[in-house]
Structure formats: structure tokens, C-alpha cells
Amino acid sequence: MSPVDEILSQVPLGALAAQLGVDEATAEHAARQALPALLGGIQANAEDPARAASFAQAVQQHDGGLIDGGVDLGQVDTADGDKIVGHVFGDQRDLVVNQLGGIGPLGGAPAGDAPVGAQGALGGLGGSGLIGKLLPLLAPIVMSYLAKKMSGGGAGSGSLPGAAPGAGGGLGDLLGGILGGGAGGQSGAGGGVLGGGLGDLLGGLLGGGRK
């Protein structure tokens, strides 16, 4: 199971859709855009020596219990989520949101009501406004997921021995393992969780720009 699927399995899509004001299919498509972006953005920061320790500490400050037995969206702190998104993407936040929402070259907007794949743009399904609302909702869930992995918990892909608590390298190793093929899954089209245009986008904006 890919990390995206693992996280989504703990998120009540009906409640998420209601909070976003869309149908469940649209909420799921949007989440499959936002989750890889968050994971990849955190990975890019964890690989930057200047930011790795602070991101590892931020992950450990989140309770892995948030995702135990299914996420209660009422317990998600979206104000905290907004800060996380800001720290992950920095001054590139609007560009990432717009790209994921289908404004720009990533994936291209679908025609009419055509179905959207996991790596396709959301231009016809709510676009950047939907992604902008979704990221702060999902960010604390992603941090909780990573906190649980760093502490050696979590079903599915299991714990990773190299992810020692308190070490920036541990978080980088953890993310490298689950995003670099260690989870053994794909989140739709592309060669992995961050396949195709999304991987190129995040690598260019975050990886290359901060090292």
C-alpha cells in the first residue's frame, strides 16, 4: 500500500467532502493531489541540512494517535495545518497550489467533466481554491502519519529502522524509504508517489532551490 493510500484509508471521505463542499469523488481526487505534494515537500525540506532537524522536531510534536482508528476531522487543527503548509512550501506556496489545481503546465486541466487521475490536474473539479482549502486539513494528518512512523508504529508499510527519533537524518531516511519506492505502491499514474510532473515540480521548487 502506498503512503497516499495508507493515509487516505484513515480519512473519512464523506466528512472530508462535506467540509470542502464537494462530492466524495472530487474530495478523493483532490486529496490524491495534495498528499504527495505535502509528503514530497516535507521530504525536500528534510534533505536540506539547514532545515532537517527543525522538521524532524516538528513531526515529533504531532500525535501519531490522530490517525489511529480513523481520523476525526473535528480534531484536526487547521490553523496548525496552515502554518505547516507555509513552512513546507515557503514563498512557493501559491505556485504549488496553482499547479496542483490545474493552473499551469502540471498535468493540464481535464476537458469538461472528464475523470481525473491521481497525477492529473483539477482544473475542472474546483482547481486551486479546493487545493488551498484541503492542504491545511491534510497537513496535520500527514505530520501525525510521519510521527507514528518515526516512533515505529503504523500499519501497512511498517516502521523503518533508520528513522531514529530526534535525528533529521531519520526523517530523511523515513521519507526516502516510503516515497522512494519503499512503500511498494503507486498513487495512480506515474512511476511512484511523486512520479511525473509533480516530482519535477517539487524537486525544482524545493529541492534545488533550498540546497
Rank of each mutant, 00 (worst) to 15 (best):
G90S: 10
V142N: 05
G153Y: 13
L138M: 15
G40T: 06
L8T: 02
L205T: 07
H29V: 15
A114I: 02
G208F: 13
I103G: 01
S187L: 04
S2Y: 01
L138D: 00
V76P: 10
G102L: 03
G107M: 01
A27L: 03
V96M: 00
L8W: 00
G14A: 12
G190Y: 00
G195R: 11
L198W: 05
G188Y: 09
S54L: 08
L130P: 04
G181E: 00
G184E: 04
G207F: 02
L39Q: 04
G123N: 05
I67N: 08
L202Y: 02
N45D: 06
G204H: 14
G81K: 02
G204S: 14
L16V: 06
S128P: 04
A167G: 06
A50C: 10
A163L: 04
G65Q: 11
D63P: 03
L95W: 02
G74H: 10
A155I: 04
M1S: 15
P165K: 10
I7H: 06
Q61L: 14
G102F: 11
G40V: 02
A53R: 09
G112T: 00
G204Y: 14
D91L: 15
A34I: 07
G169M: 15
L206Y: 11
A50L: 13
S159C: 04
A30L: 07
G177Y: 13
A79H: 14
V97H: 09
A18I: 11
Q75M: 12
A44Y: 05
G117H: 03
Q33A: 15
G153P: 02
A17N: 07
L38I: 07
L39D: 09
H62V: 13
G90T: 11
L137G: 07
L13Y: 12
G180F: 13
V193P: 00
R32I: 05
R93Y: 12
A50I: 06
G154N: 06
Q92V: 07
Q75P: 06
A34L: 01
V11T: 10
A17V: 05
A111Q: 14
P49M: 08
G40Q: 03
L194Q: 13
L95I: 05
L198D: 07
V88R: 08
M143R: 02
A53M: 11
G203K: 13
L39E: 12
R32P: 03
G120Q: 14
P12A: 11
L201M: 03
D48K: 10
I131T: 04
Q99F: 01
L20N: 02
A56C: 00
L137D: 03
A109C: 03
G112R: 02
G104Q: 10
L138K: 01
R51W: 00
S151L: 12
L179D: 11
G86T: 13
G156R: 01
G108W: 00
D94G: 09
S157K: 01
A30G: 05
G180Q: 08
G108K: 01
V88G: 05
P12W: 12
M143W: 07
